[in-house]
């Protein structure tokens, strides 16, 4: 199955890249973009077929490598 992982900066952690993107959107004439937060998207192809075991494994991967939990949150979505 596939696991899709979103890694995003925690609330309260400044995101200068998101701010720069927001300003560029404004300069392109896109009004009303109140905030932009940039993150990462990872797609993992995993052999595990049991969703509970798969989620536990991906969570462990996030804690150990994919996210830096000092500054980032992660979100896991499993796709059959």
């Amino acid at each position: 199955m596939k696991a899709r992982v979103h890694v995003t900066l925690k609330n309260g952690v400044l995101d200068p890249q998101g701010k720069a993107i927001q300003h560029t959107l404004e300069s392109l004439g896109f009004d009303g973009v109140e905030d932009v937060r940039q993150g990462k998207f990872l797609e993992l192809e995993i052999a595990e077929t049991d969703p509970v075991a798969a989620e536990a494994a991906v969570k462990d991967m996030c804690e150990k490598l994919l996210a830096n939990t000092v500054i980032e949150n992660y979100d896991i979505e499993l796709v059959e």
Binding site: V13, L14, P16, Q17, V70, I71
Partner: peptide, 11 residues
């Protein structure tokens, strides 16, 4: 060591 090193504020 605690904390993290993020992208420079100036980018």
């Amino acid at each position: 060591l605690p904390g993290a090193l993020m992208r420079n504020a100036s980018l």
